[in-house]
């Protein structure tokens, strides 16, 4: 049989079998057993992961009577935004009744300086460790990394004493310092590994040109490390925003971050439980890290992978 005849007998695109036997791609059914199992499992798992988010949103949009009578999974019959308004501006914790807004602004005032300070310190540390190895530097670095695994409970009280000595116990600045300290191990590791992976020649060339420690850092390393800064910001904003332990230990009721205030609102023993307000407050607290997560996508994954695998 000539080539010509064979090619004529093969219709374009489709899998086909004739006298010569099968040709083209092996036919695959969309509903093969493998696909049903694969996508079935994934969809069931995805539903399980999405369920709490769905219930949170649905509950926060219902009125209390509807919650008492209805089903937590059913969509709201009458959508109301009142729970959101209440959660934000009038929900009570103890004597204060100005809602979560106070906690939100406290968290902003904690998170922004903590992120900037911790990243500034850690990037310089990482740079010094990667490019200016001095005697003993590695020892401190190892202590730092091992320290990342020490339970915070062991160091909580000594830090209380230190902060009290310098007069920052209970203030937002004190908490900023605590976050910078405990963010240091992972961030330093992140920056050190990133700077180590940059070509050594670049650093040598800059030194030959007469640039010093800060010159090289500001003019060469910083501009080239934007991606890792983004990763670090994602890591820190979510980490600090979500912190509860340090917030509850190192701040006073009027400087409580959002997570602490949320817990106090929801778990307060006085009054009637308003589940819709609680869920609205919960979503509000989770909103900042969620928005960061959905915007940053792959960078978030890279951040936690870098932070976790090598930490």
């Amino acid at each position: 049989m000539s080539d010509q005849a064979v090619s004529l007998s093969v219709p374009s695109g489709a899998a086909h079998a004739d006298a010569l036997g099968p040709s083209g791609p092996k036919p695959r059914h969309i509903f093969s057993r493998r696909n049903i199992f694969l996508y079935g499992t994934l969809i069931v798992a995805a539903l399980y992961y999405l369920l709490p988010l769905y219930v949170m949103i649905v509950t926060s949009l219902k009125g209390m009577p509807e919650i008492r009578l209805g089903n937590i999974f059913s969509p709201p019959l009458e959508i109301t935004f009142e729970p959101w308004v209440k959660a934000w501006s009038t929900a009570c914790t103890g004597l204060n009744c100005d809602g979560l807004s106070r906690g939100f602004w406290n968290s902003v005032r904690i998170t922004v300086p903590s992120v900037i300070l911790s990243i500034a310190i850690a990037s310089v540390n990482g740079y010094a460790l990667a490019n200016w190895r001095f005697k003993g530097a590695d020892t401190f670095f190892i202590i730092l990394i091992v320290g990342a695994f020490i339970p915070y409970q062991v160091m909580i009280y000594p830090i209380v004493i230190i902060l009290r000595e310098i007069g920052l116990y209970g203030s937002l600045s004190g908490l900023v310092i605590v976050h910078s300290i405990f963010g240091m191990p992972i961030l330093t590791l992140l920056f050190r590994n990133y700077f180590t992976s940059m070509p050594e020649e670049l650093f040598r060339a800059a030194r030959v040109d007469g640039a010093g420690f800060w010159g090289i850092y500001l003019r060469i390393m910083l501009p080239m490390s934007l991606p890792i800064f983004v990763v670090a910001v994602i890591l820190q904003v979510t980490g600090i925003w979500n912190d509860f332990l340090f917030g509850v230990v190192y701040t006073r009721p009027d400087t409580y971050p959002m997570t602490v205030q949320l817990n106090n609102i929801v778990n307060s023993v006085q009054g009637v439980k308003e589940y819709n307000v609680n869920m609205a407050a919960t979503i509000l607290t989770g909103l900042v890290p969620l928005v960061i997560y959905f915007i940053s996508g792959r960078l978030f994954v890279r951040g936690i992978a870098a932070g976790a695998v090598k930490g």
């Binding site: 064979v6 093969v10 374009s12 695109g13 010569l20 036997g21 099968p22 040709s23 083209g24 791609p25 092996k26 036919p27």
Partner: peptide
């Protein structure tokens, strides 16, 4: 790898699929 078109024979046997 799955092919898009054509046939493969090994030892005279059609092994495309």
């Amino acid at each position: 790898l799955d092919i898009s078109k054509g046939r493969i024979f090994i030892k005279g046997k059609n092994v495309t699929w």
